[in-house]
Each structure stands twice: as structure tokens, then as C-alpha cells.
Design a protein around this nucleic acid. Sequence first.
RNA 1: GAUCUGGUAGCUCAGCUGGUAGAGCAUAACACUUUUAAUGUUAGGGUCCUGGGUUCGAGCCCCAGCCAGGUCACCA
Length: 649
Amino acid sequence: MRIVAEAFVSGFGGILDGAEGLVAALATACGHGKYEKRGKDNGKEGCSHSCAKIRPKPRLQKCNLNGAVIFAALISTHMHQELSEQEQVRREALQEIINLGIDPFPAAEYTVTHTAEGIRDTFDEGAEMKDVSLAGRVMSKRIMGKASFAELQDSTGRIQLYFNRDEVCPGEDKTLYNEVFKKHLDRGDFIGVRGFVFKTQVGETSVHVLEFTFLGKSLRPLPVVKTDADGVVHDAVHDAEMRYRQRYVDLVVNPGVKEVFVKRTKLFNSFREFFNSKGYLEVETPILQPIPGGAAARPFITHHNALDIPLYMRIANELYLKRLIVGGFDGVYEFSKNFRNEGMDRTHNPEFTAMEIYVAYKDYEWMMRFTEQLLEKACIDLNGSTKVMYGDVELDFKAPYPRVTMFEAIQTHTGIDISAMEEDGLRQVCKDLGIEIDPTMGKGKLIDEIFGAKCEKNYVQPTFITDYPVEMSPLCKKHRSKPGLVERFELFATGKEIANAYSELNDPIDQRQRFEHQLALADRGDDEAMMIDQDFLRALEYGMPPTSGLGIGMDRLAMLLTDKHTIQDILFFPQMKPEKKETKKVELSGNEKLIFDILSKSSPMDLNDLKIRSGLSGKQWDISMKALGKLGLTKVTKTEEGLTVEVAG
RNA sequence: GAUCUGGUAGCUCAGCUGGUAGAGCAUAACACUUUUAAUGUUAGGGUCCUGGGUUCGAGCCCCAGCCAGGUCACCA
């Protein structure tokens, strides 16, 4: 219940009682019981009561009472959303600003000449800065009588502002300082300021404000996060729900969050520069695909109405990029938003970004050299060094990286040489190593399981794992010299895969057989086996040059390079379950409404009758009746026959 | 999907054999012309996630649900 109770009488001074009665009732209803006589107010007499529980102001109602006109604010418990005390205060401040003739949301451009960071840098170099203007959010205010300090946060950081009453208000009228600045300017509001730069006694570079302009009012209080003199952050918003659902708040308030995303973009730019400098072409390929190909994953399905066909959100863009190589490009790449309808955890978001690049006339050996150069450059571009801390390990992305074949890796970490084994032998090895398997798994999958369980985690520093079994890699060219294997590598770091590359399979007959083998896997129950993309095969039949392709999970790489251990920390808006709909507290609860509806049809009525007709349990009845009473909607009277309930007022 | 942990003021968090709640910051008021996680004094602010149950009485105990996080499983 948030209402201002206010009533006043015009016309007859003596009839204050009517107004007073209304307000007194309201004051009682909200539990305070106190109200204030106002005396003359605009020629009217009145009285008012306000408390945090009964604001903002409800609609005024007008009625006649013995010839006097009473305007009364009446209880209306369900007319608006609940606002916290601070939100109400801000809305009131907004109104006050408007009343003073200031537009809290002006349309005009505000000319900004400097940024917070720019001012600090230039001024520290000794430059005079007589006239600067900048804009941003007010993040704190420290008022000391006629002088005040505030902090302004723009896109580059924070800078202190100094306000002096007599300089902001050179004339007699000090409203701008005393009212607008001191009272109605809230944390989070956007303002523009003009002034000159100076250093305070404590040595803080500050802007001495001569003029400030409202640029946008903030109606919701931001969480207060403070950083002390030692750089220790206090009361940071930790709640993941708030941080990810309301990323804007996280960005405004938590130090260092922006930097992560800036680095993420730098990573993409660094890749682009590298690829473009080699003359490779950035392209775009379909996200809505009739056949989801290029990876083993469950897709999202959607439907195109006009064509009346199912379409899939892409799980990879590989097959399309290869079509472009068929078409005659030497090198094509794409940052590909992919969608996979699978579980979510610290390293999986349903939509994620991969970078894939395909270069003609190259093989996977070349691609390894290319990849390590790419990552070395990116690492330097982001952090100024090839070294980066991830948790408590230091990763070094300086090229070259060790090359280890998959069989060597398994031999090293299990002591078992599986290079000559068939499916049955591998099955036995898995059992011996305590690895869970199921009958749908083929040879390649079994090897992959062993690697995943026993080897992967050991490759903390960047390492290429090469030469995978053919069964796991239906789009990859058979190894030039090792039967049963393909020319594939994956790059591991911190025990996780961050890149995957092939000498691409360009033999259309082999490719068709591989797809058919996938179909066989699907029949065995592997629901992620690839579908056959006939058009892709047709493209290959026209001829594709030898090509090497590389895919990098950009999100996971960004995590590595920013020392973030959750994918949600490097996605602006990670996927979340929908917020539950705001419960309509404004309305009466179901039970309260039930009782009130029965009662309003025949008020007053016997309390026991009402209870029986409501059909509520003792406890529910009790809770609902208390609530109704508290809202001032019902009134219980004791008579000789028993208890009677009536609609109050 | 299994399992564990959490959900209390705008924010960060306390709370106790079960007796309807506390702190800091934020907010409001006053003081103060260079402070800085400003300070001092005072005040207001809470359906203790939701719904059931046990109880004379539940923020606390029990059950179910919702949301978030961790671990495992599945999955790149």
C-alpha cells in the first residue's frame, strides 16, 4: 500500500472535519494513526498524512460535503506497482525538476570535448585545461555546505567533479545548487558538465564545474559499489542472477567488467587483422539451414511459414565455407554464431561464436604454423605479452607449440599402445581403465573416450594433438601415410580444446562414403551423427582444391585470455531461464479477493457465515482476513449475536 | 537428468532450543567552502523466494515448487 493521503477543503473553512476524517482514516489504515493539519494551502484548508507506505500520490477525488468541495486522496491499494522508498523519492525528484522548468530527458546533443580518462592523462602531463565539457553518470556525491564533490563516470572511467554554490549559481538565485544539485540530482543520473581542470589539495585531478546540464534521470537506484584508497572493492554485486540478467547494472557498477568485453572485441579484431593481412575474405553464410551440417550436435529446429519447411539454426558453417572454396576463393573466414540444443554449464551456452577459416592449397601442417602465429599475435594484442595467467597457471602462447599424436598421448598417459587395436580391443581397454562405454560407440568414439578421460586434462600449455581416428572425423582427409587416421589436429590449453583443424576432405566419393558411415552410426543410435548434405557433395564433385580449415571456439579462447572461468562472464547476455512474471502484488490475493467479493455482495454479514461461504481453511481464512483488515477494506464489529464483517468506509 | 548449497532492506551480508528481524553502505533531514570507501547527529525503509504442513507461535523445522550457483552425468 503506497499512497499519500491528502485532503483539503475549499469554500468553507469550518468544514475541515470532513477532510480530516478521510485523512485520519488513511493514517490509521497504514498503521501510523497520525496526520497533520495543514492550515491554509493555496487558499484552502486541509490536512495530510504521508508515509513511505502510502506514496506516490493517488488520483484526487472530488466530492461535495455540505457545500464545501473536498478533494480527497482515497485509499487505492491496487492502483500501481509497488515502488521502493528510494524509487519513490526519485520519481518525486523527477517531478520537482520538471516543476523547476528543467527537462530531465532533453533531446539536444550535448557536446563533449573530453573524457574522464583523457582529462587525467593530459592534465597529468602538465597541460592547462581551461574549458572542458564531459558527460556521464553521477556515481557519488559528497556535499559540504556550499561546496560539493561528485564523481562522474563516463565510458572511460571516473573523474571527480567539484561544485561550488556561488559559481554554479553566480546570481542571487541559488536554486540550481541548493535544490537541483543537492536534492534532486541522484546517483546514476546522467549529466553534462563544463568547467576547468584542477588538482585538489589531496592531489586528485578534478573538474571544477561552472555549469551542469541534466541529460537523463535515473529512476532506479544502482547498487553501491565502492573502491577504497587501496583499490579494494567493497560490496561488489556478486549475485550471478543480477549480473547476467541485468548486465547493464553489472557493467555500470562492477569495476573490470567492461574491460573483459573490450578484450573480447579486441580478440576478434586481432583475428580479423591477421586474416585480412593475408588477403583472406570475411564472409557470411546462412544461419537458417535446411540441413544442419558440419558438426555433431543437436540443432534447434524452426519453421519457415511461406516455404512451409523446417529450418535448422546452424550448428556450424563448415560446409558453406567449403562451398566457397569450391567457388574459387583462396581463403574465407567467418565469425559464426552457432546454436546447439544441448545442456548448459560453465563452458556451454546454447548460442556461441566460432571462427572458421578455410585456406586453399594448404594442409594441416601449414595450419598448425598458422594457428600458433595467430594465437601468439592475439595474446600480445590483448595482454601485451604471450603469457597470460589463467587461475594460478601461467600459459604461454609463444609459438611454436608441441605436436603430439593422439596415439602417443594415450601411450604416455595410460601406458597402452592402442595404435593397432580394433574395436574389441579398445572396448577392453576402456573397461580396464574404468571408462564407461555403451554399445553405440564405434572405434573412433572409443579412442576419443580414452583420450578424453585420461589425456586431455594433462595438456595445460598449448599443445597440438594430431592424427585422429577416421571414424570421428567424417569431413577430414585420410592421413597421407598412416592408415585409419586422418589429418586433423586439435589445440589444447588448460586441458580443454580450443581449436580444431583438418586437411579438408575434398574427394567426393570418399566424402559420400563417410556420410554413409555416419548414417550407419545413426542407425546404431547415435542421435548426433551427421545428415547427408547432397548439395555439399555435388559441390565437391565439381572439384575442391586441397584445403585446410580451422575452427576456434571464440568464447572459450576469450575465457582463456581474460582469465574468466565461466562462459557467462564473456557473453554479455548469457542464456537464462525466463524471470518469473512479477506477481501482481498490487491486486488482492486470490483468497482475499474471494472473501471481499462475497462480502461486497452482502455487507455486512456474519463472520462465521462468511468463513463458511469462502470455504477456506482456518489458517488461510485467518491470513486473508488479517490482510483485508490491514488494508482497511473490511471491518469486524462485535455485536450481541456475534461477529459481523462489513466493507469498511 | 542426479545431487549439494543459496534466496532476509535499494546493495553487500548477519540472525536464532522456533517467540513476526539487525549491521554497513544507500535514502531522507540538519551541520560543514577541497573531500575522497568524507564525517557527525537523527529518521524512515522488510509480504524474511512462492505454496502447503507441523506448532499456541515459523525467516528458522518438514514437504512441494520456482530461480541461481557448485559437483557429477550427458554433450564439444
